[in-house]
Design a protein around this nucleic acid. Sequence first.
DNA 1: CTTGAACTGTTCGATGTCGAACAATACGGT
DNA 2: ACCGTATTGTTCGACATCGAACAGTTCAAG
Lengths: 170, 170
Amino acid sequence: MEAGKIDEAKTEEADDGSDPGRQLEAGAAETTIAYKLRLAQILAFRAFEERLAERGRAPRYLGLLAIIRNHPGQPQSRLAEAVALRRSSLVTILDILTREGLTERRPAPGDRRSNGVWLTEQGEQMVEELLAESQHHDAILTAGNTAEEIKTTLRVLDRVIANLRASQGA
Amino acid sequence: MEAGKIDEAKTEEADDGSDPGRQLEAGAAETTIAYKLRLAQILAFRAFEERLAERGRAPRYLGLLAIIRNHPGQPQSRLAEAVALRRSSLVTILDILTREGLTERRPAPGDRRSNGVWLTEQGEQMVEELLAESQHHDAILTAGNTAEEIKTTLRVLDRVIANLRASQGA
DNA sequence: CTTGAACTGTTCGATGTCGAACAATACGGT
DNA sequence: ACCGTATTGTTCGACATCGAACAGTTCAAG
C-alpha cells in the first residue's frame, strides 16, 4: 500500500501564517473519516449543550433518555452498551438524571441483580421537548447539503457503527 | 414545525428483551446526524486508541500532530482552534507530547507571548507511521460502503464542520 | 507616549469518563 | 445439590477536558 509521496522538502521552514482567515489543515489525515468524525462531533455536541445549558444535564444525555423512552425497563448494562459508555459511567449519570427527576430505577422482577430504568412523567416531557430541539439543531448542522446526501451519510454512519460494534464485541 | 405524532400508547409497559441480540434504538433521535456522529466517534476513537495503546499518547493526538506537521511553527492558540480543543487543554497535551519527545516549543521570533510548535525528528516519524495506521483503520471502519458513499460523507462532514465553526465564531 | 483593550500561554478547581476491583446474584455442568 | 463462572450494579483512584482567572505582551487610539 504505497502511500502517495507528499514530500515538500520540509527542512526547518515555518509555516508563516499566510491565508490568515482559514483553518489549519491536517494533510493526509484530512482524507480519513475518523478525523472529521471527531471534529464534527466535538463541535456539534458542544454547540447543542451550550444552546440548552439552562435545561440541566438532560441535553448531554438526550441520546440515553431517548433510548430509555423507546425501551423502558431495560437494565443499566444494556443502556450503557447502547450509548457506547461504560457500565461504571452510567451509574453516575443515572444518579444525576434521577436526582433531576427525569429517570427512575426499579428493581427488575426476574433478576435481583439488575434495575430496570424508566422515565418519569417529567422525563417523558423533557425528552419530547429536547427531541424537537435536536431536529432543529440537526437542520442547522446539515445546512447546505441535499436530502440525498444526508440520507447517504446516515447510512454510512450506520455501517460504521455496526462495523465497530462487531469488531469490539469479538 | 409540527413534529410527527409517534404515540404508541406507552402506558407503563416494559420493553421485554425480545430480539435479544440487537442493539437498543433511540427512536426519533436515530434520524439525527448528531446522534450517530457521537456514537460513531466514540467507538472509532476508542478502537483506534486501544489498538495502538503501546505507542503512548500519540494515537489520541494524531490529528494535532498531523496539523503540526503540515503547519510547523504555529502558535498554540491556533492549534487548539484547529482541533476544537481549548487553549488551556492544549497546554497539558503539549507538555505530554514534549515529554515523550514528539513535539517542541520554540519562542516565536516576532511575538514574545507565543510559542511556535514543531515536530521533532522522532515526532515526524511517529506521525508518518500512525497516518499509515489510520488509513488502515479507516478502511475497516468504512467497510461495506462504496467509494462514492464515503466521498459524499466526507463532503457532508466538511460542511457540518464549517457550519458549526461559523455559528460558533460569531 | 500613554493607556486601555485584546491576545498568549499558563494555573487551578470542577466535572466526566475510564478501568480495575468488589459483593451480590444467576446459571450451567456434573 | 454443589461449585465455578458470568453478570449486575457499584465504588474508587487516574486522567482528560473545561471555564475562569491571571501575568506578560502587543497594539491601536488618543
